[in-house]
Amino acid sequence: MWISNEQFLGDLGMGAMHLEQGGYTMHSKSFAESIFAERDIRWIVGAHVKQVEAGKVEYELLDSTFHEQSFDFAMLIPPFAGQEMKAFDASGEDITSTIFAPSGYMKVDADYTPKPYAEWSADDWPKKLQNPTYSNMFAVGIAFAPPHQISQPRKSPNDTLITPAPPRTGMPSATMARAVAENIVDMINGVSDTPTRTASMAQMGAACIASTGKDFFTGTAAAMTVYPVVPDYAKFPDTGRDQSLTSGEVGLGAQWIKHTLHHLFIYKAKLKPFWSVIPE
């Protein structure tokens, strides 16, 4: 049983995606439901987990009804959360709200003006990941405050927000980290006073390989690529994405990619020779 706060299976926290399958441009809801149905996995979506006890999880649905699911074994992924850090300036004044959003993530060069879902734009997303007040503070990956979710937010009548947070997976996190690190080096070395490289999630892609059986000859994985992570309906009016770079498929080849990435990234983490040429 799969329990998720997604509005539908395949939302993936990024308002879903479209992929080419069998001559059709298909929505990721169809893709994900097909994989789940094939593997006999049931799903409960639009659910907010309220409480977990031994052998039992309680959740609220979008209609504010409460339900229970029993389990022998459960894997729970808690929602993203910022750190409860406080910030003070040199005179001891509390500047927490200047640096951090109420969610605990660091404010960067995003457009945080509250606006309805229909008015969200790719341009709201930060490019330099730099705090607007303190130019020597940056936040990448999970640490920066997104301007809003990517998926359409939904609330139950009880006012419980039931929506996935924007994914900041390994590839985008590391891409942002590299751009920011290189900008900081330039700023320290006096090459530039301001960051010159950008790494907006609305201008970068991501690849995600989810293993569905790890044997080297009989295993499979679902490989998904998406460009850009944050849909840009101004550039790509149909689906918000470049369909030549947005795809999904299941197969052994994808599982081999999972194996390859596993070894490459561990090699890179150990800083072995030529580690820096291995991409993020």
Partner: peptide
């Protein structure tokens, strides 16, 4: 076809190529 070796070798190459194209666009 999900585990048919000749086809999956092609898919492995195609997926690698797609990821390289993604990297080139986003970096």
């Amino acid at each position: 076809m999900h585990t048919f070796l000749p086809w999956q070798i092609i898919r492995f190459a195609a997926l690698n190529l797609k990821i390289v194209r993604l990297l080139m666009k986003g970096h």
